[in-house]
């Protein structure tokens, strides 16, 4: 960890004024401090944003609004979230550990960095950490890496569970900077690695996440987040599925589906959604609908199992949801 200047502003305007190039905002610190200790991130300035008023978990006609500084544990425990957006609570509770969830914020969660081991080890080449240095994972150990949205420059997954659920539900992110505020759909907030894997989203230098809005819908309340991993807890997803269904009797009126652990960003699956629309909730329908889920996947030397695992994860999630009706 290198020396840096540290400020603790009380207002958003002040925080934005403190920020410049080489600045990192500090929320829970569970990603940032880790990466600073590993020398992966070396900001010259750290702006502690915990005193900013980016708080609140409220439900209104537009949907669910969550301030960027709300803690993962508080959001997971919120009554409205549990009732109307169960997959959000599930995605949170299947993340990290209780101690981490008490510290970690929603804004920080969306901006957490990949868990690719090479990214976190400064003795190895990594395009995301050091553009142009090469991608060690392409020829290295890549069992946990992505199969969708990858490029020859980077094959790292986006690690957030929450983001998968939020993308499935069509969430908006509210951003604020010296230039004003703007709102971006979370799905397009994240960018594909292409030849610039060090750029992961459309956030501008010095711009803050203020909060998110998850719209009201006919499906969010009938939703599940299923996370598959080697260890039963305290591990990132090998695959995950966020599935929400609007039912009409035993028929799926429409579905919203995204997958984690497979993509370089939270991966929406519109083809699966449309294959399910208007269909009865049967095993055959599920199997047929997910058959194309991993189309276009580029498996690596150690993660050839992921396309099949993705399809099975989706079928299992759909089955769980259908059975819980």
């Amino acid at each position: 960890m290198r020396a840096y200047t540290f400020t603790q502003p009380r207002g958003v305007r002040e925080a934005l004024a403190d920020a410049g190039t080489d600045t990192a905002f500090l929320a829970g610190g569970t990603t940032l401090v880790d990466l600073m200790k590993l020398d992966v991130v070396t900001p010259a300035r750290v702006v502690d944003i915990n005193r900013l008023p980016l708080r609140g978990i409220t439900l209104d006609r537009d949907g669910l609004h969550i301030g960027a500084l709300e803690r993962m544990s508080d959001v997971a425990a919120d009554r409205n979230v549990r009732r109307d957006y169960p997959m959000i609570a599930q995605a949170l509770e299947l993340s990290a550990s209780a101690q981490l969830r008490n510290m970690a914020s929603i804004g920080g969660n969306l901006l957490q960095r990949t868990r690719c081991g090479y990214f976190r080890d400064v003795t190895t080449p990594c395009n995301k950490r050091e553009p142009g240095s090469g991608c060690s994972a392409l020829t290295g150990i890549n069992r946990t890496h992505a199969i969708l949205g990858t490029s020859d420059a980077c094959v790292a997954t986006h690690p957030s569970d929450l983001a998968v659920a939020l993308v499935a539900l069509g969430t908006d992110v509210h951003l604020v900077s010296g230039q004003g505020t703007r709102t971006v759909p979370l799905d397009t907030f994240y960018t594909l690695p292409g030849s610039t894997p060090h750029l992961e989203n459309v956030l501008r230098p010095g711009e803050l996440i203020a909060g998110i809005t998850v719209p009201r819908s006919m499906w969010a309340a009938n939703s599940v987040y299923l996370k598959i991993r080697d260890r039963q807890s305290y591990e990132f997803a090998l695959t995950s599925a966020a599935v929400a269904v609007e039912w009409r009797g035993r028929t799926i009126r429409q579905a919203r589906i995204a997958a984690g652990g497979v993509g370089t960003k939270p991966w929406r699956l519109p083809a699966v959604e449309s294959a399910l629309a208007g269909q009865p909730a049967t095993a055959d329908v599920f199997e047929a609908a997910v058959s194309a889920a991993a189309d276009g996947a580029r498996p690596l030397s150690h993660n050839g199992f992921k396309p099949a695992l993705l399809r099975r994860t989706l079928v299992r999630a759909l089955t769980v949801l259908a059975e819980s009706r």
Binding site: G117, R120, Q232
Partner: peptide, 18 residues
Amino acid sequence: GRVAAGNMADYMVPVNAD
């Protein structure tokens, strides 16, 4: 010759839930 799981994030040991 690098050990690819040379830390407690990548070297998986059982947790209580296992």
